[in-house]
């Protein structure tokens, strides 16, 4: 087997193991119902993480994800109060996401500032903007929200795929096509794998950087839309520290934080692992939610160390 699939294989193995452990511990756990719920409850994290996957594959990082989700939520809620149709406001917010991401990418490349810091400023900016839009929790009352919530596809067993899960799976499919079947996707892997070589091989670094953050912005805005429709409200603190969960999902999905190695589909499983952990802990009932954070941290640690040794074993050049 190609060694670069080891992280992905590990991810899927961990996911299956956790699922089976759950099945062994609790009756009714091994069911499409639980699976469908995990998919729906974590769809916005996974959508955001898909965008983050591209950014991380290119060797960057995007910390503005959580704030973007919050900002999109409050904006849609306020636009709803002003009589906008949720689909119209969603379209507007997706455009905003693309532009905001592109701007971040441009600053990163033009000023040669670490992505970490630029997107950190993005995090502040958008969170501040949330509070400027509204300081209260605002409901979204449009009929479309009920319609959205009622959409579902029945799975074998008692499970359903809710609309959020459907949006997530659709955006995953699009992401897989972008990553593996477009020139842009190849360029992202190339820039993350070895920036200088990529430049010599004719990849336009600036265009790729700007596009990859624009794509990241689009996906976090989409995550915000899904979150707003799922919770049918906008709250200015929504999505705080979600960027961490998204990055954790990407890493657990087998993508190397140093860039260039990983697969978008892994992020689905990475997000599902995070979802499974919290579901398991909630099923237990007696365990504190602290265990969610700690077990995520332990898994993250294990994966990062695994990646570290994998990098030296395949002789990849590490880019700091």
């Amino acid at each position: 087997m190609n060694r670069k699939y080891i992280p992905l294989a590990t991810t899927i193995a961990v996911f299956l193991a956790l699922f089976l452990i759950g099945g062994a511990m609790y009756r009714n756990f091994l069911s499409t119902l639980v699976l469908g719920n995990i998919l729906a409850d974590n769809s916005f994290i996974i959508i955001a993480a898909i965008g983050a996957t591209f950014v991380i594959l290119s060797g960057g990082i995007d910390l503005s994800i959580g704030s973007m989700i919050g900002f999109v939520g409050v904006s849609m809620a306020v636009l709803d109060r002003m009589g906008w149709h949720p689909l119209a406001s969603a379209a507007l917010m997706l455009c905003f996401g693309i532009l905001f991401g592109a701007a971040q990418g441009w600053i990163i490349d033009f000023c040669a500032i670490q992505p970490f810091i630029v997107t950190l400023a993005g995090l502040f900016l958008l969170r501040g903007a949330c509070f400027m839009v509204t300081v209260d929790s605002v409901p979204i009352r449009h009929d479309f929200v009920q319609f959205y919530a009622s959409l579902k596809v029945h799975l074998p067993g008692r499970g359903v795929l809710r609309s959020s899960a459907l949006v997530m799976l659709a955006s995953l499919a699009v992401a897989v096509v972008i990553a593996h079947f477009t020139r842009f996707g190849s360029n992202v892997y190339a820039v993350g794998g070895d920036r200088e070589s990529a430049r010599l091989m004719g990849v336009d670094i600036r265009r790729t950087t700007v596009s990859v953050y624009a794509l990241g912005g689009f996906y976090s805005a989409l995550a915000g839309v899904v979150y707003a429709l799922y919770t049918s409200s906008g709250y200015p603190l929504a999505g705080s520290t979600l960027e961490l969960s998204a990055i954790a999902a990407v890493v657990l999905g087998g993508t190397l934080l140093s860039g260039g190695v990983g697969m978008v589909v892994g992020t689905l499983f990475g997000g599902m692992i995070l979802g499974l952990i919290s579901t398991l802990i909630i099923f237990n009932g007696s365990l504190n939610s602290a265990w969610i954070l700690i077990s995520s941290g332990v898994l993250l640690f294990a994966f990062i160390v695994l990646h570290r040794f994998l990098v030296s074993s395949i002789g990849l050049r590490e880019t700091q």
């Binding site: 990082i61 970490f116 961490l244 990055i247 954790a248 934080l257 140093s258 504190n288 939610s289 602290a290 265990w291 969610i292 954070l293 700690i294 995520s296 941290g297 332990v298 993250l300 640690f301 990062i304 160390v305 570290r308 590490e318 700091q320």
Partner: peptide, 21 residues
């Protein structure tokens, strides 16, 4: 030899959980 951002991310994610524990 893990990159600092990545290495400290681990404690960043799990540290508050340790506190709750």
């Amino acid at each position: 030899g893990i990159q600092p951002i990545v290495a400290t991310l681990i404690l960043m994610v799990s540290g508050r959980g340790v506190g709750m524990l």
